[in-house]
Design a protein around this nucleic acid. Structure first.
Length: 193
DNA sequence: ACAAGGATTCACT
DNA sequence: GTGAATCCTTGTA
């Protein structure tokens, strides 16, 4: 059965907490996500309309949107919302639950806790790169996402790392989890408050 | 064609 | 706590 991700992104995003994302031997239990809208969200890559990079976000839900940032990091999103709404959910952090050895090999030296705590780290642990962009994750593809139950209530709060609309409470994480990034607001965006 | 900035991470002081 | 690394995408000239 296909998991229905076509509800508005701010509704779907919290339901992704607890889900299991798998790529090959490595599987991660998601503990933190962040929702991004389209035309109504200045912080979203899709805010300025459809481009070659964000094309996937405009498509149907259930696909993978991977992008490269800061010249060194990949970040993975699951496209959500109805076809054409250009919204997605960034996988911000998780706990490696399978394939730990391979994940650790990819990550170099890092504690188990830090293997997937952070968007770039999570993508690196799973080996997600631009080659997987647009891949359908609700079927039998190379990358799969299946529903899971959070171990604790899911709470929400301000977004991290974005300079606009940072206060929109579209970041969702599992309460009391050690595998959630507790980054302070970036110094650049610190002016907002 | 060019310049600016980014949904970050890591090492060093 | 502060600063650098590093390259892709986008808007503007």
């Amino acid at each position: 059965m296909a998991w229905d991700l076509s509800a508005p992104v701010e509704v779907v995003a919290p339901t992704l907490v607890g889900a299991i994302v798998r790529h090959g031997e490595v599987a991660v239990r998601i503990t933190e996500v962040e929702a991004y809208g389209g035309a109504t969200d200045p912080a979203s890559h899709a805010f300025r309309g459809r481009t070659a990079r964000n094309e996937t976000m405009f498509g149907p839900p259930g696909h993978l949107y991977v992008y490269f940032s800061y010249g060194m990091h990949w970040a993975a999103n699951i496209v959500c919302g109805p076809d054409g709404t250009a919204s997605g959910t960034l996988l911000r952090a998780g706990e490696v639950v399978d394939g730990v050895d391979q994940a650790r090999a990819r990550r170099g030296r890092a504690t188990d806790r830090d293997l997937a705590r952070g968007p770039g780290r999570l993508a690196q642990s799973l080996g997600l790169t631009g080659e997987l962009k647009g891949c359908y994750v609700l079927g039998d593809g190379a990358v799969t996402v299946r529903p899971g139950t959070p171990r604790a209530p899911v709470v929400s709060g301000p977004r991290v790392g974005v300079s606009l609309e940072a206060d929109r409470p579209w970041r969702f994480w599992e309460a009391d989890s050690r595998f959630v990034s507790d980054y302070k607001r970036s110094p650049r965006a610190a002016a907002v408050r």
